[in-house]
Nucleic acid binder design. Structure first.
Lengths: 268, 268
DNA sequence: TGATTTAAAAATGTGCACATTTGGCATGGC
DNA sequence: GCCATGCCAAATGTGCACATTTTTAAATCA
């Protein structure tokens, strides 16, 4: 059932390969010449790893060593190092001193914690939203519901998952508060990593009706009902969480994960 | 009125100076000798700068250049650099490419956004809390109220400010959700920086009664009332926000801010 | 054979030497 | 007198050469 996934738009992978190819080859000989200023390069590597993480291509527990990544992306090791530490600061990677970076292996409690946080947050959001709700918002949400339903009947599971998460994003964004929006995005990105372990997205769509009930309560400006429905919705999702029995050895081969990008040179 | 300030306990400044003094002096001559592994050193510098930020010693807009900081703390520039970038990733410092780090200068809207986020979050927290509230929690909160009142009558403004923030921390912590607790801590730390610009803490205590009303509503398990009171409380605070007319040139002298710590050697 | 020790290889962490960029200041032109 | 331009000092960014630590493998011993 509904695994919430943040709605990222552009896929900067193409950008990554473009920048990787255009790297200069400097004679490594005597020439001490160095400092190259390319801020886009950092960003491209960052986005590539982040996307691999969000798309679940990087399985939980996988080690992200610096040398192979530097080789794959065709950049210096410190470049990789900086990105890895940044992802660690954002709590998207687990950094252990002297032992490198790993994709976090969340416990079941961690997952529950994230879902509960989302549930509590949305209760607050709805409380505030009933004060601001207008026809335009209702229409927007209704249109979104139609999209969800369409994807569901069409059997497009990927779209269903995406739209299901987007619904909740629409709710917070309606408040127009950057802090709250960021917080939700944080929760969603974290939950997306968990999918690979506790895949709650086994059976198909079930959320559309519940989402519709929330919109209905909003239209009626019935705070209590909106919160109650939202709560039930989340508890419903949480109850479906289960440990994936077959941990799936998790392909340790980073090259296959980032294989799409063409580095200066591969392994040799 | 009540400026919320996260309840930090230990003051790792002593630690910082201790580590600064015990730094080795290596002959800077030919000896290429290098790599020293001291994880506590990073942490000490990080905590020192963070605390200066949270305590408002670093005024908004101040430039945090690497060389002087490296000199003050007696560590290498890259050490400082790493810490600065980390603080930037946490959005506590404003990082501009090729132009270094500055203490952020939040707009009035930024401040309002933070307070609004706290307000919305607390609405959600209270919604969940009325389901879990028990005698133990009520007693704990009541005891806290007594502390607040004591500090107020005693005229201890610093304690009042600290306890006022701690009250809201107690509320989220009661849920036992790490994500939510972290989010609140984030909001509080951000608002503390804003105090230096829009000091909302001009007049003394006013929150104790409002805090008491929240506890009262919790005891009665009256969600609507709890949220309403909380909301009023926050709006009350927000309404007192005002732009500080006299921006106070902001002592650009970093040495005076971090003067407490004894480096290997000062300016010379 | 299995567990322990030891040595080699790989990976992480850090200071340093640069290159690049920015900011300030003086000089010169209008 | 004021703005534009060029130059110089300072600050930021980055690759590299190490040291340190961890991990892997081999070798030794019980």
């Amino acid at each position: 059932m509904c695994t919430f996934f943040g709605g990222d738009a552009a896929h900067p992978l193409g950008l990554a390969i473009a920048m990787a190819t255009q790297r200069r080859r400097n004679g490594k000989g005597i020439g001490k010449g160095i400092g190259k200023a390319n801020p886009a390069e950092d960003e491209a590597v960052y986005q590539a790893i982040l996307h691999a993480l969000l798309e679940g291509k990087l399985k939980a527990g996988v080690k992200l060593a610096e040398p192979p990544l530097a080789d794959i992306f065709g950049v210096s090791r410190e470049r990789i190092r900086k990105v890895l530490h940044r992802l660690g600061a954002e709590r998207r990677l687990e950094m252990i001193p002297n032992r490198g970076a790993r994709v976090p292996r969340p416990t079941l409690d961690d997952v529950r914690s994230v879902y509960e946080a989302h549930r509590v947050l949305e209760a607050g959001v709805l409380t505030q939203l009933v004060r601001l709700v207008d026809e335009a918002l209702i229409e927007k949400l209704t249109a979104h519901l139609a999209e969800e339903r369409a994807a569901a009947t069409r059997g497009d599971r990927a779209a269903s998952v995406r739209l299901s998460g987007a619904f909740h994003v629409h709710l917070v964004e309606a408040l127009g508060n950057a802090e709250l929006t960021r917080f939700l995005a944080d929760l969603l990105s974290r939950s997306s990593v968990m999918v690979s372990v506790y895949e709650p997205a086994t059976d198909s769509i079930c959320a559309v009706d519940e989402h519709g009930a929330i919109v209905e309560a909003l239209r009626a400006r019935d705070v209590a009902r909106a919160i109650a429905v939202s709560r039930e919705h989340f508890l419903h999702v949480e109850s479906r969480l289960h440990l994936d029995d077959d941990p799936a050895p998790a392909s340790e081969d980073l090259t296959s994960v980032f294989g799409a990008m063409k580095p200066k040179r591969r392994k040799r």
